[in-house]
Nucleic acid binder design. Structure first.
Lengths: 191, 191
DNA sequence: ATTAGAATGTGATCTACATCACCTATCCAC
DNA sequence: GTGGATAGGTGATGTAGATCACATTCTAAT
C-alpha cells in the first residue's frame, strides 16, 4: 500500500471524504524520506509542520539538562507526530523529533492543515477526533505513571505495542517509561 | 457576568460566532447547580455530557483499589471537564467528577456537541483547539512528572494556579501531584 | 578484519518518597 | 455544646528505583 492509500484509509476510519475532497487534501501533504537518526525537529527550531508516519519509527522526546531524555511518544506507521505546543502556538520547539529507523512520512504544514480544516468540514472533524484520542491516551499514561510501578508500566507497554520490544533499543523504552535503563534491565530479567 | 456571557467570551477567544450562531449554540447548554461534595460522574456510570464550569471548583479523579486517589484535573471557572474517554467512546466512566466547592456549570451533552460541531463549522474549530490545548497541557504534566521531583512539581503548580493553594485542601493537591499528603506537608514546611 | 562507539547486564550504594503510627486542630451535625 | 468526621503535622522505618562503576556484547564505519 502506498502513502496515498495509507492516508486515505486512515482518514476514512474517522471521516468520510469524497474522492475530490481527498484529492484536494492529499495535495497538501509532502512525502519525505529520512534516514535512521535524522532529526525532523530540534529543540529551539521554528516548527511549521506535523508528520504522518508511513513507514519506520520516530520518537518525540524532551532532553533535560542536556542529559536525561524522556520520550513522549513513539510514532509508528499511521501515527502523527510533531511538537504540537510549538506548532499551535507558533513558538519554538521545546521537544525533539527524530528517526529511530529509516522512515517515510507525509509532512503537513500548519498553514495547510488550517486551510484544509477551513475548506473541508469533515477534515476539521477528523483532526478534532485525532487530537481527542491523543488527549485521552496521554491522560491514561499520566494515571499509569502515578499509579503503577515501573514493572507494571513495562508490561502495559508491551501489551499495547508488542512490536516495540524488538524494534526499539531498551534504553529508549526506559526513557518512555520514565525509569533508568538499569532498572528496566533488571525488571525484564526478573530480579 | 452571567453564565451566558462567560461562555460567550470564552468561545470568542478562539472562534468567532455571529449572535444568531451563539444563540443557537447556547440553547444546547443546560445550566446546573451542585453542592460541595456532589458527584457529577461516578466510576461505572454511562457518561453523556461534558461540563463547562461557571463558578466553583470541580475535580476529576481516578481511584485505585478503592483506596488511593489520583487527580487528573482541577476544573476552575471557564474550564471544561468530563470523562472524555467514556464520553467519546460511549463506554462507562473509569474516572469520577465531583465538586470541591459549590459549583455552577453548563452541561453539554455529547449529542449536542456533535450536532453543534456539524451545524457550525466555527464550533468544530473551537472544540478542536480546546482539545489540543488539553493535549499539550497533559503532555507537559507528563514530562514534569517524569522529570521533576515532588518539590519542583509543587512549586510549578502553585506558580500556575496560585488560587488553588487556599481553595483546595492539601491532600487533594498531593493527589494531583502524585505524592502522599505527608510528603507534601513536609515539602512546604521546608524540611 | 579491526576498532570505536553504542547497547546491555549486573553489583554496590544512596535517596526520595511511601507507609505506618500517632497527635492536634478544625468543622459541622445533632 | 459535644462527638465524630475531616484536615493537617511529624517522627520512625521500609523500599523502589536512581546513580555509579565496570564488564560484556553488538554494530557499524574505516
Amino acid at each position: 500500500m502506498n502513502a496515498r492509500e495509507i492516508l486515505r484509509e486512515h482518514i476514512a476510519k474517522t471521516a468520510s471524504l469524497t474522492d475530490e475532497q481527498f484529492d484536494y487534501c492529499f495535495e497538501h501533504f509532502e512525502p519525505q524520506s529520512f534516514k535512521k537518526g535524522q532529526v525532523l525537529i530540534a529543540e529551539g527550531d521554528r516548527v511549521d509542520a506535523e508528520y504522518f508516519v508511513i513507514s519506520g519509527c520516530l520518537k518525540s522526546f524532551f532532553v533535560n539538562d542536556e542529559i536525561k531524555m524522556y520520550i513522549l511518544q513513539f510514532a509508528m506507521p499511521t501515527w502523527w507526530t510533531s511538537d504540537y505546543n510549538a506548532l499551535y502556538t507558533k513558538s519554538r520547539a521545546s521537544i525533539n523529533v527524530d528517526c529511530i529507523t529509516d522512515a517515510e512520512v507525509l509532512s503537513l504544514s500548519n498553514a495547510s492543515r488550517e486551510k484544509l480544516c477551513r475548506d473541508i468540514h469533515q477534515l476539521e472533524y477528523f483532526f478534532r477526533w485525532r487530537t481527542n484520542k491523543g488527549y485521552v491516551a496521554t491522560q491514561k499514561r499520566l494515571l499509569s505513571l502515578m499509579n503503577n510501578d515501573a514493572k507494571k508500566r513495562y508490561e502495559e507497554l508491551l501489551e499495547l505495542y508488542p512490536q516495540l520490544y524488538n524494534l526499539v533499543p531498551k534504553h529508549l523504552i526506559a526513557a518512555y517509561l520514565g525509569v533508568s535503563r538499569e532498572t528496566l534491565s533488571r525488571l525484564y530479567n526478573a530480579h
